[in-house]
């Protein structure tokens, strides 16, 4: 999960914050509260997860408790993969 965490962090930093400064995003930062990702952006994140982690994000998974921070996403992916 550490590899995913780092890949995800880099992806969010580069594609939504347009920076390589690691300090601009902590693992618990809420994407919504910090206005990092909007409603269309979350669809881009899902595409990234499905490509990188070989999981399928179902409609019922589209909840902030699964997708709203790096920590939430990595826990969600782990649960999915442990299935």
């Amino acid at each position: 999960m550490q590899v995913l965490r780092e890949k995800l962090r880099l992806y969010i930093l580069e594609n939504f914050l347009f920076t390589d400064d690691q300090y601009e995003l902590s693992d618990d930062d809420s994407f919504m509260d910090k206005e990092i990702i909007d409603s269309t952006g979350i669809l881009e994140v899902i595409e990234f997860l499905e490509d990188e982690c070989q999981i399928k994000v179902e409609d019922e998974d589209l909840l902030p408790e699964n997708l709203d921070s790096i920590n939430k996403i990595t826990s969600f992916v782990k649960r999915k993969q442990d299935g």
Binding site: M32, S39, T40, L62, L63, P64
Partner: peptide, 16 residues
Amino acid sequence: YLDFNKIKSTDYLKQV
């Protein structure tokens, strides 16, 4: 065009 059917929680809508 916003895929509301997919977004089950109103939390996303609240945020946006």
